[in-house]
Amino acid sequence: MLVSLIAMLALALPMAAQQKLAFDVASVRENKSVEGPGGEAPQTNVPLGPGNVYSPTGGQLNIRDMGFLLLVSFAYRMSIPQQDAFRDMAPKWVTEARFDIQARTDKTDVTKDELRLMMRSLLADRFGLVVHNEMRTAPVYSMQLVKPDALGPHFRKHTGACSKDFEGKTTVDADADGYPEVCGGLLLLSGSASTHFRIGARDMPINVFATSLTGWGDLGRPVINDTGVTGNIDFVLDFVPPYAQAAAGADADGQGFQEALRKQLGLKLESLKQPVEIIVLDHLDHLSEN
């Protein structure tokens, strides 16, 4: 579930369309190892979620046993609805095939966003991937403040500096105010009840937060930031995930997702229709190996 939560952090990447970067050396191979027990777990030296968590690797990108959809999602920083739309347009192998990638750029100080652009070039070269962006009217949720100009008790605008030293941790402790001790990505916090998720982040763009709500709450539609809040935020949210709430029914101990949004963060979701950006698949081939 941790991998799913991290993968759910998503926002369309506002990078210059005319900028084209590519790896200097790259090997891409389909991983046909046995799935399930005894198979390989996906591995990567660069977090493929859409957040800013990234420790420079000297220009190296090493990925093993990774699904194609996650590779595309990393390259284009897809939201959950964009991933769903792409999956519906793509051939079946996109959800089944797994790949190993070893790539290097001579730009040893390469940023994570530059790696995304290089991944776009690699997918175009080896898979013939061609996409374009298109606006389509669809049901969305408008994220609004419950009380005008008032944030909830566990939601604030980001101020001050914080450490980005994760040291390989998958969970972290909270600081004196209850927020993660480190910043830059979505984190599971220690001390959650067994049926709850307690997640938090510091220094997260508000629009990344809004689009992430779709996956965290299993909402089935995009979320648009209409709070009037701009810039980066800190938050902590403790909730019973939808699947656990459905299983427990009336016996669920804790706040459901939307109730937690209201009471802990001071946010509400209003249903409406408006244009949203979809990444449309124009062309895709199976792997053309080295």
Rank of each mutant, 00 (worst) to 15 (best):
Gly256Met: 12
Asp218Leu: 11
Ala246His: 12
Val223Tyr: 01
Gln245Asp: 13
Gly228Gln: 13
Gly256Glu: 08
Ala244Glu: 14
Leu213Met: 14
Thr214Phe: 06
Thr227Gln: 02
Ile224Asn: 01
Gln255Ile: 13
Ile206Ser: 06
Gly254Trp: 06
Leu237Cys: 09
Gly249Lys: 02
Gly254Asp: 09
Ala248His: 11
Ala244Leu: 12
Gly215Thr: 03
Gly228Pro: 05
Ala244Phe: 11
Arg221Cys: 08
Gly256Thr: 13
Gly228Trp: 10
Gly231Val: 15
Gly256Asn: 15
Ala247Glu: 15
Ile233Lys: 07
Arg221Met: 09
Phe239Leu: 06
Leu219His: 01
Val236Tyr: 00
Asp238Asn: 12
Pro205Trp: 09
Gln255Cys: 14
Pro242Tyr: 10
Gln245Tyr: 13
Thr214Gly: 01
Gly256Arg: 12
Tyr243Ile: 14
Thr227Phe: 01
Gly256Trp: 10
Phe239Val: 04
Gly220Lys: 09
Phe235Gln: 00
Asp234Ile: 09
Asp238Ser: 07
Ser212Ile: 05
Gly231Pro: 06
Val223Asp: 02
Pro241Gln: 11
Val223Ala: 00
Arg221Gly: 04
Asp253Lys: 15
Asp253Pro: 10
Pro242Trp: 07
Gly215Lys: 04
Pro242Met: 11
Pro241Val: 07
Ala210Tyr: 02
Leu237Val: 02
Pro222Lys: 07
Ser212Val: 07
Ile233Val: 15
Gln245Lys: 14
Thr214Ala: 09
Gly228Leu: 11
Gly228Phe: 12
Thr227Pro: 00
Val223Gln: 04
Ala247Val: 13
Asn207Glu: 14
Asp253Gly: 12
Ala244Asp: 12
Gln255His: 15
Val236Arg: 08
Arg221Tyr: 03
Asp234Ala: 07
Phe239Thr: 05
Thr211Trp: 07
Gly217His: 00
Pro241Ile: 04
Ile206Glu: 01
Asp253Thr: 12
Phe235Ile: 07
Thr214Val: 08
Pro241Arg: 03
Phe209Tyr: 12
Val223Leu: 00
